[in-house]
C-alpha cells in the first residue's frame, strides 16, 4: 500500500499539512500511567486476597481506576480534535 493509494482513498491529510501535526498523544500520560498501575496492582491484590476482604477492596479499586482510565481516554479524544483543528488553522 503506497501513499498514492491512501491519497486516492481520501485517507491521507492534504500534502500541505504533512509535518504540521504533532504525533504525541493528548492523553494525560502520568495520571493514565498511575491509574493503569493501580488497576494492575489491584488485580494482583485481589488475587492475593484469596476471596477475603482484600479481594473485594481491590475489585472496587479496580472499578474506580478503570473508570478513571476511560474518562482520561474520552477527554483525550476531544483534545485531539481541538488540537488538529488548531494545527490546521496554523498551517
Amino acid at each position: 500500500m503506497s501513499l498514492e493509494d491512501l491519497k486516492e482513498q481520501n485517507i491521507l491529510l492534504p500534502e500541505e499539512e504533512w509535518g504540521t501535526h504533532k504525533l504525541e498523544t493528548t492523553i494525560a500520560e502520568i495520571p493514565l500511567a498511575i491509574l493503569f498501575l493501580c488497576s494492575a496492582v489491584s488485580w494482583f491484590l485481589a488475587y492475593l486476597g484469596d476471596g477475603n476482604w482484600l479481594t473485594w477492596v481491590s475489585i472496587v479499586t479496580f472499578f474506580v481506576t478503570f473508570f478513571g482510565i476511560i474518562l482520561l481516554c474520552d477527554r483525550a479524544v476531544s483534545k485531539q480534535r481541538k488540537r488538529v483543528k488548531k494545527e490546521k488553522k496554523e498551517s
Partner: peptide, 8 residues
C-alpha cells in the same frame, strides 16, 4: 503525521 488521527 500524514494521517488524520482522532486518537493517539
Amino acid at each position: 503525521d500524514k494521517l488524520d488521527y482522532g486518537f493517539l
